[in-house]
């Protein structure tokens, strides 16, 4: 009798261990796919973006090209579609070695592919980007320190340079606080998923 009960306990124990292993495999696969998806997308976007260097100097002011976003900061950010998903540009953080595509609208399926715009526009200096804490996405952002360089490039090839200014830990309900007061914000979950780590940046 005890023998049988012992076997039963061992079986339950093994099932639990297998579940842990299964969940780990799922997480690792998800993370790996996210890396592949975003690397593919950023490659395509980089081919399409023609980076605009500083204002070209013309002798004749009438032939100067003024970026559209300066003429109309309220304009929608231009998008490029890849596999039915609209992207608004790329994000580079040289100090942690990431270069990622940014999806225009956030959703849970989109977050599994790449970081997403959660709010705002770079043209209005209020954009907030959300991403999973995958290693290839935003896990490392908590290691950023003040002054680190962050670069966003839009689909028109305009480059926006930022410096990390502050890090904040916010509860999941702090929507208002997350979306106000900073030029540029990146956020992801802490490892337990209970808080959001926000990296606040100032435009240079």
């Amino acid at each position: 009798m005890k023998n049988k009960r012992g076997t039963g306990l061992i079986i339950v124990g093994l099932i639990l261990i297998l579940s842990a292993a299964g969940l780990s495999v799922y997480n690792i696969t998800e993370e790996k796919n996210a890396k592949i998806f975003s690397e593919e997308a950023v490659g395509i976007l980089e081919q399409q973006i023609v980076v605009k260097e500083d204002f070209e100097i013309f002798e004749n002011a009438a032939e100067k090209e003024i970026p559209d976003y300066i003429l109309n900061p309220e304009m929608e950010m231009p998008e490029t579609e890849i596999d039915g998903i609209g992207y608004i540009g790329t994000l580079e953080i040289p100090v942690i070695g990431i270069k990622l595509p940014i999806i225009s609208e956030w959703s849970y399926p989109n977050l599994k592919i790449a970081p997403c715009r959660y709010f705002g526009s770079v043209y209005l200096d209020n954009m907030v980007i959300a991403a999973h804490n995958y290693k290839s996405h935003f896990r490392e952002i908590e290691n950023l320190s003040a002054g680190d360089e962050v670069i966003f490039t839009d689909m028109d090839g305009n480059r926006f340079f930022y410096s990390v200014a502050a890090a904040e830990v916010l509860p999941p309900e702090a929507v208002e606080e997350m979306t106000s007061g900073w030029d540029f914000t990146l956020f992801t979950c802490n490892p337990a998923g209970t808080f959001r780590v926000a990296i606040r940046c100032d435009r240079n």
Partner: peptide
């Protein structure tokens, strides 16, 4: 705000509980 963390916390919990069950089973036997 969107949930941007992976479900990692159950892994050690499941694994630990599993180990306990197995140990208890062996002890019983």
């Amino acid at each position: 705000l969107p949930q941007t963390g992976q479900l990692w916390w159950p892994v050690p919990v499941l694994f630990g509980m599993g180990l306990l069950f197995v140990a208890a089973g062996i002890f019983r036997r």
